[in-house]
Write a protein that binds this DNA or RNA. Structure first.
Lengths: 202, 202
DNA sequence: ACCTGAACACCGTTCAAGT
DNA sequence: ACCTGAACACCGTTCAAGT
């Protein structure tokens, strides 16, 4: 243990309290739900005083916002990892839908935070950008297919909205327990098929 | 003021604290959001002690559950008032979708409570019944249309699920501010059309 | 720069006691 | 039967003071 490291030595107590708090918050979220999340408890688990979190997050909402952004990052990675532009449209959408659904099931509480409309003003800019990135990737798939004539004409944003809404609806049914997770994952092919071909007989 | 009405006289202080608390809770929900809802504040507004609500709701969640049931009642009434079995399928679905969307926009916080998956065990039975009634009405529309050959073959529950999910997704986009309420209401015809006819060109 | 300790103004819930 | 008052164990947030 070096005796003299004045400039870049560990900040006395914790080193990286911010990350520790975020990680702890996500664990609590997953294990006990949003309602059980307490800054004081988080501080206790991290071994710091109850006032310490205030140095890294101006208030509880700021921590929730940061957590939501973590969620958007993770979702973005999952989606771009799952997307394969070489796939035929229906297959491509199915794979994307499955990835979104899997994320929603695995991160139900986090997703709720991501969709919550109570962000602090200074976070909502990043939040909006994150949302744009997420729906943007879907919009690109739709626009590509449209150019190839595989999707009806019309405002790509409208079509993306409908597709996104359908996915979001199924995901929220699955995350909310209205639909068993396995049933949702098993039915995803049929859902995408119906979305593309419509409910009316051809 | 009659001096002797021992049996059916007003219960001393309030008369109907339960309803007053529920009404106050919904107003708070609407004006300040779920997070601002406090039993003590509600008691203050009703002019009773902070312990009084405990006589009518075993805890805060019980009040939220009761509120959610109020929401299901109101939604059920709105939907059955809007449904017109004489309408052609696409029109009938559009009208229903518009009613659901309008309810979601007007009762965003209430809807969140209705979909929350944290109900007390004894309330979740009524909650499940309320959900069944709601999706049941949609399922009937789908099954009717299917019998007339206006909708593709397949498990009516699956088709209902997709339709319900789409509506729920659009509603949650609108309620969450991701989609302007007017835009959602204006686009509803197109969404229903796309749902029926599919994204692929015919 | 980061953290502590005390303080303030809130919570939900419980329970004896009152009417 | 319904409500009160006090009590208990929590909160989030702020702020002087410490290192």
């Amino acid at each position: 243990m070096p005796a003299s490291r004045p400039a870049e030595s560990r900040p006395y107590h914790h080193g990286d309290l911010r990350s520790t708090l975020l990680a702890g918050a996500e664990r609590t979220l997953r294990e006990k739900g949003t309602g059980a999340l307490s800054l004081r408890e988080l501080a206790r688990e991290a071994g710091v005083s109850h006032a310490a979190p205030g140095r890294h997050f101006k208030d509880k909402q700021a921590l929730l916002d940061a957590l939501a952004l973590v969620g958007y990052d993770r979702l973005g990675q999952a989606l771009s990892a799952a997307d394969d532009p070489a796939l035929p449209l229906e297959r491509r959408l199915t794979v994307l839908a499955r990835a979104y659904l899997a994320f929603s099931i695995d991160n139900a509480e986090l997703l709720e935070l991501m969709y919550a409309r109570k962000h602090e003003p200074d976070a909502s800019e990043q939040m909006a950008a994150a949302v744009d990135r997420t729906v943007g990737s879907l919009e690109r798939v739709i626009a590509d297919a449209q150019e190839r004539g595989e999707i009806v004409a019309g405002d790509p944003q409208h079509l993306t909205l409908l597709t996104g809404a359908t996915l979001q609806g199924i995901a929220s049914f699955a995350a909310g327990g209205m639909l068993a997770p396995e049933a949702a994952l098993d039915g995803i092919e049929e859902f995408v098929h119906l979305l593309l071909h419509g409910l009316k007989p051809r």
